[in-house]
């Protein structure tokens, strides 16, 4: 890191903030701004959009000043975790919509468990069955949450 000229965390984070602020400004342009006395629905969001952009720029600047860097070293995102956990939740949503709660839990727990390298497929399967049994018992029969267990592929 001795040779690094910028802290990527600040530069990326700041640019994202500028993008969000700019997007807010563009979208809020359609809402009536009003006046200070009678603020329209666009007034506060536009204010926030400008502040967001300004702070984003300040964070980018901070990334170029070595003595203001955060402690610790930047970490790479774990693609395995992001893809695996996202896939498991997507599976839960799709299965919950079309197949029912039990298949949804089996998919959610089974897929997400495999994200950890220490879990074998058998462990993941057993865990999925156990959570499905316990989960249905607690949430459906115990707390009375409405979620069809099986819908048979609608």
């Amino acid at each position: 890191m001795k040779t690094a000229r910028l802290d990527p965390r600040d530069v990326i984070g700041g640019l994202v903030l500028i993008a969000i602020g700019a997007a807010a400004l563009v979208i809020a342009d359609d809402y009536s701004f009003g006046s200070a006395r009678r603020m329209g629905p666009g007034y506060f969001p536009v204010l926030l959009g400008w502040i967001c952009c300004a702070l984003g720029a300040a964070v980018v600047a901070k990334g170029f000043i070595r003595k203001m860097w955060d402690d610790g070293l930047p970490e790479m995102p774990s693609l395995r975790a992001v893809l695996g956990i996202s896939a498991s939740i997507f599976a839960f949503i799709l299965a919950g919509e079309h197949l029912g709660l039990v298949p949804a839990i089996l998919l959610l727990v089974g897929i997400s468990a495999l994200v950890d390298r220490g879990n074998r497929p058998l462990t993941a399967g057993l865990l999925a069955v156990a959570v499905a049994i316990g989960g249905v018992a607690i949430f459906i029969y115990g707390l009375g949450i409405i979620f069809p267990l099986f819908t048979g592929g609608r």
Partner: peptide, 23 residues
């Protein structure tokens, strides 16, 4: 933790769902 987190993830999903019964 590798046994716990899938169960926690399920708690999160069912909990969030149950507020509006909305996936």
């Amino acid at each position: 933790y590798r046994i716990l987190y899938p169960a926690i993830l399920f708690f999160v999903c069912i909990g969030v769902y149950s507020i509006n019964n909305a996936l």
